[in-house]
Amino acid sequence: MISNLLRVHDLRVSFATEAGIAHVLDRVDFTIAKGEIVGLVGESGCGKTTLARTILGVLPENSARIDSGVVEFEGENLLDKPSEELSDKIRGRAITFIPQDPFSSFNPVFTIGTQIMELMKWKSPARDDPYYANSASRFWNGYPSTRYEADKGRVLELLREVQLPEPEAILAKYPHEVSGGQRQRLMIAMALLPEPKMIIADEPTTALDVTIQAQILHLLRTLARERDVAVLFTTHDLGTTYEICDRVTVMYAGQEMETAPSDGFFNTPSHPYTRDLLQSLPSREHGIKGIPGDIPALISPPGGCRFHPRCTAASERCSVERPDHTQISERHNVRCFHPVAHKSVGAAS
C-alpha cells in the first residue's frame, strides 16, 4: 500500500457567475503518492486549474465556494486550516507552484535577484529557526544577515543545478533581459528553493518551443526525482504527459474520468472519453477522429456522467447516476458503467 501525500475526496467547487452558478468541480477524487509525478489532463474548462487552485487554497474568495469534500495533505485537511497557517506552513513551502507564463509572474521593475531573495526571506527552509518562534521578532520584518548569506549560497547552487549560465549575472538582471526558457528555469529553481514536498506545475511548457520544452521537462523530472518531490502536472498536451508522468488522471467538464499508470493510460484506455481523446491526436496511421459535439456549459451540466451526451457507449443509466470507481487493474480506476474492453487487460490482471 502506497501512502498518499495528497488525497482529494468528493470535492465539489462552484463559482458564482453572471449567468448563474457554474458547477466547476463535481465530486472529484484524486491522490498523489510521495515523490510521484502525476499528470492531470483535460481540455480547457475541464476544471484542472480549479483543482490545482483549491489545493493551494487560492480560489477567488468572492466568487468561488467549496460545497463539499476534503483536501488532505499528509493526513491533515487543508480546507479546515486557518489562512495564516496555510500561508505560513503550506503554500509556497510544503507545496509550491510553477505558473504557465513565467513572464507575468515576475515583477518587471525589480531585478530577479531581489525577487528571489524576497521569496527566500519568507519561504526559505531555514526560516523555522527558533529566532522566528519569538513573536516579537516576527514583527520586525528584517532579514538576518547570516541567514541571507546562507540563503544566497543556496540560491546560487540551485541556479547552477537548473543549468543557468553565470548565476550571479542572472540575479542582477531584470526579467525582460532573460529568455523564456531561462525564465522557466528560474521558476523551477524558485519552486524547489523552499524544499517542498509537492510542486504544482500548471502547464509549465505551453509557452515554450518544442526544443526548449524537451530541455525543461527533462530538468523538471530529474530534479523532482533527485529530491523525491511529488509533482502535480496539469496540461492539455498528451505528449508532454507521456514524457514525464508516472500516473495520469483525465478530467472532463469537472469530473475525473479515469486514473491509470502512464503505460495503461496510453495503451489500454478504459474510459470512452480517454479513448476518443487519444484518437483525436493527429497520426499518419489511423488518420484523425474528432469527438462530435461540444463541451457542456458548466452552469447547466448534463446529469450523471457529464460525458454521456457525446459518448458512443452511453446508456440511460449514465444520464442519471455518476458512475463510481471500477478497478481495471492495480491502480487503474475508471468511472464508467461501460468501460472499453481490452483483451490484454484481462490477461495482465
Partner: peptide
C-alpha cells in the same frame, strides 16, 4: 533532426531521456 527529436511521440521512446540539443 533535433526539432523532430523534440516532439513527444506517444508510445515511442521518451524524448526527455536523451535529448541532445543544448542552448536557445
Amino acid at each position: 533532426q533535433s526539432l523532430l527529436a523534440a516532439v513527444p511521440i506517444i508510445g515511442g521512446r521518451r524524448v526527455t531521456d536523451n535529448f541532445w540539443l543544448q542552448g536557445e
